[in-house]
Design a protein around this nucleic acid. Sequence first.
RNA 1: GCCGGAGUAGCUCAGUGGUAGAGCAACGGUUUCGUAAACCGUAGGCCAGGGGUUCGAUCCCCCUCUCCGGCUCCA
Length: 643
Amino acid sequence: MPVELRLPDGTVSTQPEGVTGLEAARAIGPGLARAAVAVSVDGHLLDMDRPITEGGNFRVITLDSQEGLDILRHSSAHVLAQAVLDLYDGATFAIGPPIEDGFYYDFEVGEPFTPDDLERIEGRMREIIEEDQPFQRVVMSREQALEVFSDHKFKVEIIEAVDPSEGARGEEVTAYRNDGFIDLCRGPHLPSTGRIPAMKLLRSSGAYWRGDENREQLQRIYGTAWASSEQLNQYLTRIEEAEKRDHRRLGPQLDLYSFPEELGSGLAVWHPKGGQLRKVIEDHSRRMHERFGFEFVFSPHLGKAELWETSGHLDFYEENMYPGMQRGDDPEYRVKPMNCPFHVLVYKSRGRSYRDLPLRLGELGGVYRYEKSGVVHGILRARGFTQDDSHTFCTGEQLQDELVLHLDFVLNWLRDFGFTEFEADLSTRPEKVMGTPQEWDLAERALAEALVTHGLDYRIAEGEAVFYGPKIDVHIRDAIGRRWQCSTIQLDFNLPERFELEYAAPGNVTERPYMIHCAKAGSMERFTGVLVEHYAGAFPMWLAPVQVSIVPVADRHEEYADQVAERLRDAELRVEVDKSGDTVGDKIRRALTDKHPAVLVLGDDDVAEGTVGLRLYGEDRDTRGVPLIEAANRLVEMARRPS
RNA sequence: GCCGGAGUAGCUCAGUGGUAGAGCAACGGUUUCGUAAACCGUAGGCCAGGGGUUCGAUCCCCCUCUCCGGCUCCA
């Protein structure tokens, strides 16, 4: 019986039963058939030489699509494993999936790989690609597979983990063979190794088997593969560009902050320009908090260990806390890793009535967490940082509206800083929890509704919530498409319980309030670091530490430059006058490399006419003879902060 | 915390088992200049820290600290 293949344009291609993907593609066009790496029937990907037995929606997969690239990278990972097994006696292999922009493969070998090893392996891979070995799909029983892979313990573990209850297929295992190499794999693969157009190994590192730090540490090799060497080069350039945005490089370069070795790992000092930047961000945070009905509180950096026992942090968070400190017979104290217990104490400072609720308490609170030494990463992951933290106490009836308000706050906040793409995760109940199933249902539903109210796309992270309540994490995409987690809205059934929080409900019934933790920027340090990378250091004018650089052409223009500066400072602009003895070109170059949004060049004509030469960052031309008033108005307009 | 790599002037980097080098920045002088680097000069170093091997260590070995790439974790 012939199979009917519905092409993406709606036409139907009727083919004999058992037609291969390659033949079907050829029927559409020989060029397409040459470019094809796999076909898709009703969403199922098949190798080019697999017979098609049932019709459906048919697509030819080429390297122009993400699916095609995934196949390319998966096949590249196989070639990587093949090369490693060829070159290293006793090496065994674990898993090797395609990932964003590339692939990796995990190995167990005697010695970790060195950069020289990578070169050798890449050389062997090129030979395999040159030999154009066909990938052959092999179907075998579990028993056969266990036999074939008996020397490879990780493969055996994978085969044994295949759930036989998954219908008839559960007893079958597929693998792909090329030359003497065979690897377990669902496929599909490229028709042959020669179909890998461009590939490069990037680095090696350690990685735990199954991501479990208690299990074997394997050696992972990362690589990338692309449809052409142009695309590969573009990708490598993109990596370089991303490196130039690195906040650890740009921050010190722009004199924002630094990480003195004497200070300690994960700790930064903020320089005046970084301080200015943070002040603008934090001022905006305070204004927004007030606008959304939050009240500011302050709390100390440490508190009695007993407080952290009551809050439960010493049970579930101690490994992230700095050790206790104690003097003589005084009680032990702990530096705070979170602000919540303090805000709870504010709540408890007097009896509360339903009329007090919702009570929204906010603080830019400095916290300290003992991060594992391998994870600190500039100001994106520090040991001391400042949360724009808030804790809202409300009744059950208020919960829904409060969540909507918090999410509204978060999104407004992020938009003000130029982020437009958001993705949310809704983390739901894990196995062990505080709170009743009814409470969790209520809370998860309330969070989901808040997300829907804002028309925000979200993913449900099943079972990923912490034990004390479900939460929403909001992720942003930056200018070059990277995803960052900043904001979080977290419900808490635990602390109100542990601290026995209460309020008097109407009719003088005692009730327990709900509690919502919320961070908008997350940490001021991380958020600032993300902004540095997002804008590559060239901040929008309202954020820029120096908004206007004034460049007098010669010494005799300095007096006028001071006058202009004063005029602009009166208009609340942040202005610097460059009085170094350097040439005009040099001074302009410095202002531009420091990424100042505006440069005013002042010479004889300007002194005579009361004008300025205006040059804006990102524009490679300048405008001469702009009247000072006009320039000032324009700059003030550009520097306006989001209201 | 784990695996690997690295640490030389403020920054970017050369360098060698035998007294430490460049460019930029800094400082001094000359230049006073109209849109991305004027010229001359000066100074700057416990070669991350500590131990060892050696006649001699910045270089070789060990430990510690810090950073980088990952894993795990995460604001």
